[in-house]
Amino acid sequence: MRTARSRHLVSGAMIGLTYLAAVLATLPLLLILVHLLTKGASSLSLAFFTHMPRPVGEPGGGMANAIVGTLVLIGIATVIGLPIGIGAGLYLAEKKSSPLASTVRFLSDVLNGLPSIVMGIFAWEILVRPIGHFSALAGGVALGSMMIPLVTRTTEEMLLVVPTSLREAALALGYPRWRTSISVVLRTALAGIVTGALVAVARIAGETAPLLFTAIGNAFWSTSLSQPIAALPLQIFAYANSPYDEWHQQAWAGALVLIAIVLIISLAARFATRSRFGAPVD
């Protein structure tokens, strides 16, 4: 028979362990950020943003092409993923319980969990293999395909927060359904949808595996959609696996820039969320 005292000791100890878990879980993130800052910042310079990569042995050089390439890939992915995702999200929010809606909801969640490498293989099979060469477009399609289910689900979630009464009020004023959806419901949920879109962009911005099969990287300047294109994650991967110290330095600098892009997008998303909750919806 355990005494009350020992039970309270156990309780205290277990609560203490959850505190320890919180410390241990946040530790890696802090470590990674510290290392990125110390190792990355030292090799970061203006040239890193404006110059092309140089061969080993030559000092200087940057990742201008990879930075631009990443932005191009994000752009293509957004053009594909955002409209389709928002359209599908609208459908899910409006036809909540139709069989197609339940299927799409489930499959979106399943797609969100699929390894990104699978998306790479898919885009390679439909856009690289038949055409015969790697391309920025294929990379954008792979990343855009990853964005679709992400945006679909967050859009739906944000639309469901909008009270039904608002939709009814618009319909009762004589708004057609489509205008009710676009200029009242979507408009009201816009801040949340922007957040969801930004989170999705942040998520795909750092993807590497799908690009190995599609964009593949490019040592030269290219913004052509039909040609292979450089990307920050690919460049970091290549440099990190190289045996040269200078390239390792460049990889750290590249990682710092990549994480800065991702963090800025994530923080923007946080900010957009905050202003959403700042304005009372109901």
Binding site: L173, G174, L190
Partner: peptide, 16 residues
């Protein structure tokens, strides 16, 4: 609906 206005239980101003 253009000729028959309706007001609901809870106020429904468009928040945006």
């Amino acid at each position: 609906r253009r000729h028959v206005g309706m007001v609901f239980q809870r106020p429904t101003p468009f928040p945006t």
